[in-house]
Simulated scan of single mutants.
Amino acid sequence: MNPRTRRSHLRRMRMKQWSHPRILALFQDSRPNSEPRASGSEALQVALAIARMDFLRSHEKLLLSRDIGTAQELSRMGLPELEGIILRSLNRGVWNPAAFLEKARRDEDFLARAGILFLSLDDPCYPPQLRETYRPPFGLYVRGRLPDAEAPCVSLVGTRAATGRGLKAAFGLAEGLSSKGISVISGLALGIDSAAHRGGLRGRAKTLAVLPGGMDSIYPAANRGLAARILDEGGCLVAENPPETQIRRYRFPERNRIIAGLARSCVVVEAPEGSGALITAEHSLSEGRDVFVHRACLGGSRNSGCAALLEQGAVAVATAEDIIAEWASCGDRSGKASARRQEEEMKQHG
């Protein structure tokens, strides 16, 4: 087995080890059809109210939304009833449905003024690639135009303290991907993320930025101009958190899981040990997505994280053509393996 084949094999073995069971029942509405359901503005208010309940996990928000029919029903729900739905105890002080509904009405007004959509997990427009992940966000705040659901996306991530070589590599790869109709996803951070977004704007597929906070505050502030340009040129901003959300350190890894979940493959361009970009790579592996490292930055003084990924089985790429070739080779290998299994079965039965 040559080194490249061995790395690919190790990568896929890690993906299998990271696999998680899917709780498919969460995506099925078990509520009797005869019971009333909210619709239109009321349905949006209920969803926005649930989205603000940050003491609930994503799947718990989904369970609650499946059980709630109208805003009035939510306002009358007691804490014991909620605990019966999510099957765990909560601090009594966190439950104030009337306050959540009031904030939801303000959110609805803000979203309407700013031209922002809210997509809940069961919305047909919710990105299917993200819905397939182990812990998809209950809802997404979307400003701009999401990439075509049928077209592949690639996330480009890396350190904020990038070298000139890293910035050039991120820009060039993003431009190449976008020119081939492959949307580029990143986190709007300084350094590699910003270079990737700028490169993505040069092609026809545009770019998508995932924000760590709410839609009302672009972080970092230095990239407000870049965010505006992404929107002006047909790109998209996405956030999991409601307006007025304060930026906290733990929100960045949460943001990174969305970056990984939206993309078919992740490219770590340049990352030292401990970089947040490696968290995105971990999320990508846990979801069975490809993880690549950029060849141009290998051996650099600020790239020990990428060197570790390479040793663990990540494939080095430099161009959009390299990534497309890897996709094609994966398909060829799986097709040949399937053909071999069919041939063996025919021999056994025949």
Rank of each mutant, 00 (worst) to 15 (best):
F110V: 10
A104M: 00
G203K: 02
R302M: 12
G158F: 01
E311A: 14
Q312M: 11
L48W: 07
M53T: 01
R333M: 12
H197R: 01
G331D: 11
L82V: 08
G350P: 03
D67V: 11
C266W: 08
A195K: 04
K180Y: 09
R57P: 02
P32M: 05
T207V: 04
S286F: 02
N91H: 14
A170R: 03
L309R: 06
A337F: 09
G225D: 11
N96S: 13
L64N: 02
V157I: 10
G225Y: 05
R224G: 13
N223S: 02
L121Q: 10
L156E: 00
E233M: 09
Y250L: 08
G139S: 02
L24K: 13
A318G: 15
A328V: 11
M215V: 06
R6W: 14
M346H: 14
E175W: 10
L87E: 15
L87V: 13
R264W: 10
R88W: 07
I192C: 01
E83D: 09
S58W: 08
R160G: 09
V154N: 01
S329C: 11
G166T: 02
E254M: 15
T163A: 07
C297I: 01
D216I: 05
S58C: 10
L309Y: 04
Y126R: 00
Q45W: 06
A314G: 04
G203F: 06
K206V: 08
L44M: 13
M1F: 12
R248P: 07
R255D: 04
S30K: 11
H59T: 10
L111D: 01
D148T: 02
I258D: 08
P212K: 03
G235D: 01
I185A: 00
R12H: 15
L208A: 13
R11E: 14
E311S: 13
